[in-house]
Design a protein around this nucleic acid. Structure first.
Length: 795
DNA sequence: GTGGGGACTTAGACCGCACAAC
DNA sequence: GTTGTGCGGTCTAAGTCCCCAC
């Protein structure tokens, strides 16, 4: 690869920004990201922020960076000023409300004498509260609107009650040893080693083993579709052979991820192609030719015309404001009302293009595929130390309109085209992500995928460490429910929710910058309802709030009496929009957790409880004598239990109703067939009774078999319907990818797969595909067994 | 001590492909 | 051969957590 080299070979890393040729010699200066689509002015330098060995251009660029920072600060100040103004305005109109709030605060002051140091830290929260109240009043009846926008989904009843310690993550016999030898800090002469590849003989042996193991091939049950082991199809053999086994490498010192890095930079979005002359834009019924810039932004809107977004007031308002910024003065004078704009021809044009793409011949599709593969080969990989690594996200996000989720205040805003000069190559630290930018509304993550594997492994190791002390932590927070300090009580109740319900931590968010979503620490009084008794259960807490991605969390949970009483106390004399845990934030909570266990944060509980739920469910649902399709079904059910716990929802598939109807008609048809077959059997039996000969007996037998076959088919269809219905709004992928320790799945599979070791099982392509989708493209690859034995479930 | 921002992780939507069913 | 369906991959939004400057 002859791209930019970032050579990092000592501690602190000495970075050479000089690109090198294929032989390692320096070539052209300036680490500029290059891509096939450098934009209209590709000669402009990208910015480079670096350590001591910065080039001249880079220093200038770092000034730019400072300017940008100042700019941001300025914008922020302006924003604050605006907010102050707004607050002033609403103060006048809502003085009455303010008075009552003042009274409430005075009450609070006298009430919470228990912690003097807690008073001032509430300032920030109070400010937020004020803002929220004012926003609410301005929005007049916001609560009602919120109710309307919610998707009406009710979280199914909790699967988990109180996770028991049943041996999840049995600790490995020996302590975790560093996998890599820590290099000396002055190891300046470090040179990339020869690329380590999987031994070809081993590879052949492995493939032979797989072929021999008939059981691991595609199950015969066709009703349950199993993904093909198509890794080989997708991955060239060479690449397979060059798979890097990080777990067999020595470790760098803490914080060092790499010492040698070579990559070709990101790929820029293709330049804008103006619309054909025939495609017209109309304003107020008259044809209007737009300038290229204005036309490009208009096409973003036109492409979304069928989407609900374009009917939303905030979206339209934000879009129109940003669109006008791209217009010429003349256009600005004419186009003053978005409702008078007719984007229909544009929209039709893009639909036709999309349709044409679908209708392309095989050859044309293949050509495009090859081009994409070429691009991936050239820009999608880097050389990191001594191995080839896939880059997670090498394409720069194309320009478009921001689609916030939920009621996002910035939806519809323009995400403008990113130019080479917007890119900063930050090679002053050996980070996993080395191209950054300060762009609003754009995510420029440019990460090296496989570093993720090690991180994932560490994540699950932390969860396993939590297992060792979770009882102690639970006892501690139970004790803290009785604390004299309000802060401690709040922390203990919040932690109980995080542990019991797998709630997210709930960081504070900047008002007006994002949708109004909350997590545990940021819950407000309005988000819970207390029921001393509900549906025959005592002390029930009803949660109803919008969490991450504006996904509704709705749940009724019976809690312990002391928790219930504490919640009543926390809610006393508070308004609905007040913080439930007014003396708590994620910083305080995580600091406390760090004291309980090194590396423990709120989200570790989510990982821990998700994985232990999977383990418990697998234990309950799987039986040793089940066949593989049944095992897979059980696995999916266990997976579903975790998804429910973590509240991973999805919008029902667009074709859901139709596909359910199709399935139902199949079931009906099958029932008819079965009824006919039963009738036939009955009459055959009657005939046999009269005739009493071998021929009629044979007929009876075949009719019996037909009935049995149809009964089985009907049962399968009905199971499928139930399965599909249960999965309607549940997303399984997220938990599979992020929360479930793969070793649990592997260990669960070993006994019934008749596989000698975890290692040989994980090499089985089919299982890898089902259980660990993230490993397909070489991402998130982890150590095969991580020191676990197949029997660790019982340990 | 606090706020802001960067690094990193988690998340759902969408799209295109492969394959089963008809 | 056509259609419906499920799946993985990609994209990008939105969280968590931590560090640093003020």
């Amino acid at each position: 690869m002859s791209g930019d080299h970032l050579h990092n070979d000592s501690q602190p890393p000495q970075v050479s920004a000089l690109p090198r040729g294929g032989n390692g010699d320096p070539v052209e200066p300036a680490a500029r990201p290059r891509g096939p689509f450098p934009g209209p002015d590709s000669s402009r330098e990208s910015r480079l922020v670096d350590g001591p060995s910065l080039s001249c251009g880079a220093i200038q660029n770092s000034h730019k960076h400072k300017d940008k920072h100042k700019d941001r600060e300025h914008r922020h100040k302006e924003h604050k000023k605006d907010k102050e103004k707004d607050r002033e305005k609403s103060k006048h109109s809502n003085s009455e409300h303010k008075d009552s709030e003042k009274k409430h605060k005075e009450k609070e002051k006298t009430k919470h004498k228990d912690g003097s140091s807690e008073k001032h830290k509430d300032k920030h929260k109070d400010r937020d509260k004020e803002k929220r109240k004012e926003e609410k009043i301005r929005a007049s009846g916001d609560a009602k609107i919120k109710k309307e926008k919610e998707n009406g989904f009710s979280s199914p009843p909790r699967i988990k009650d109180e996770p028991e310690d049943d041996g999840y993550f049995a600790p490995p016999k020996e302590d975790i040893k560093p996998l890599r030898r820590p290099r000396d800090e002055d190891d300046a002469d470090y040179k990339p080693k020869k690329i380590k590849t999987e031994d070809t003989k081993k590879e052949k042996k492995r493939k032979l083993e797989e072929e021999e193991d008939g059981k691991l091939k595609k199950p015969k049950n066709k009703d349950k579709k199993v993904p093909e082991p198509d890794n080989k199809k997708k991955k060239p053999k060479k690449e397979e052979e060059q798979k890097w086994k990080w777990w067999e490498e020595e470790r760098y010192p803490e914080g060092i991820k790499w010492k040698f890095l070579e990559h070709k930079g990101p790929v820029f979005a293709p330049p804008y192609e103006p619309l054909p002359e025939a495609v017209k834009f109309y304003y107020d019924g008259k044809v209007m030719k737009l300038s290229p810039k204005a036309e490009e932004v208009a096409t973003f809107f036109a492409k979304m015309l069928d989407h609900e977004y374009t009917t939303k007031e905030i979206f339209r308002k934000n879009f129109f404001k940003d669109w006008r910024k791209e217009m010429t003065n003349e256009e600005k004078n004419i186009i003053t009302n978005l409702s008078k704009c007719d984007f229909n021809q544009m929209s039709q044009y893009f639909k036709a293009q999309s349709e044409a793409r679908k209708q392309m011949s095989k050859e044309e599709k293949l050509k495009i595929k090859e081009e994409n593969e070429k691009l991936l080969k050239e820009y999608g990989f880097c050389i990191m130390d001594n191995h080839k690594e896939r880059i997670a996200n090498f394409k720069i996000e194309p320009p478009g309109l921001f689609r916030g989720r939920g009621n996002h205040p910035k939806m519809g805003m323009l995400k403008r085209r990113i130019m080479p000069e917007d890119i900063i190559i930050n090679c002053s630290n050996p980070w996993s992500k080395f191209v950054l930018s300060t762009f609003p509304l754009s995510n420029l993550a440019f990460g090296v995928g496989s570093l993720q594997g090690e991180k994932d492994w560490q994540k699950y190791e932390t969860a396993r460490r939590l297992k060792k002390c979770v009882d102690k932590i639970r006892n501690q927070y139970r004790e803290d429910w009785k604390s004299k300090e309000m802060k401690v009580r709040q922390r203990a109740v919040a932690l109980y929710f995080i542990d019991k319900l797998a709630l997210r931590a709930g960081n504070e968010k900047e008002e007006g910058e994002t949708a109004d979503t909350v997590g545990c620490c940021s819950l407000r009084v309005e988000h819970i309802n207390l029921h001393p008794e509900l549906d025959g259960q005592e002390y029930v807490v009803e949660f109803d709030f919008l969490g991450k991605d504006s996904i509704r969390y709705y749940n009724k949970v019976p809690v312990e009496k002391r928790v219930f009483k504490n919640l009543q106390l926390f809610m006393e004399n508070k308004q609905p929009e007040d913080d439930l845990f007014d003396r708590l934030n994620t910083g305080i909570l995580n600091k406390h957790l760090q004291d309980l266990m090194e590396g423990l944060t709120a989200k570790v509980f989510r990982t821990y409880n998700a994985s232990i739920t999977l383990q418990q469910q697998l234990k309950e649902l799987t039986a040793p004598d089940e066949n593989i399709p049944a095992k897979i079904l059980s696995y999916n059910r266990a997976n579903r239990a975790v998804a429910i716990l973590c509240n991973h929802q999805r919008a029902p598939p667009k074709t859901f109703e139709k596909s359910m109807m199709n399935l139902q008609s199949k079931i009906d048809a099958k029932k008819d067939q079965l009824a006919d077959a039963r009738r036939d059997l009955k009459s055959a039996k009657a005939d046999a009774k009269v005739m009493k000969d071998a021929k009629t007996k044979k007929v009876v037998e075949s009719k019996k078999k037909a009935v049995q076959r149809l009964e089985e088919q009907l049962m399968k269809l009905e199971v499928q319907a139930t399965d599909r219905e249960e999965n309607k709004q549940i997303a399984l992928g997220t938990s599979k990818l992020n929360y479930l320790d793969p070793r649990i799945s592997v260990a669960c599979c070993c006994p019934f797969m008749n596989v000698p070791s975890v290692d040989s099982l994980i090499k089985t392509e089919q299982l890898r595909t089902i259980l660990f989708p993230s490993t397909i493209s070489g991402f998130h690859e982890g150590p095969p067994s991580g020191g676990l034995t197949p029997g660790f479930l019982s340990g």
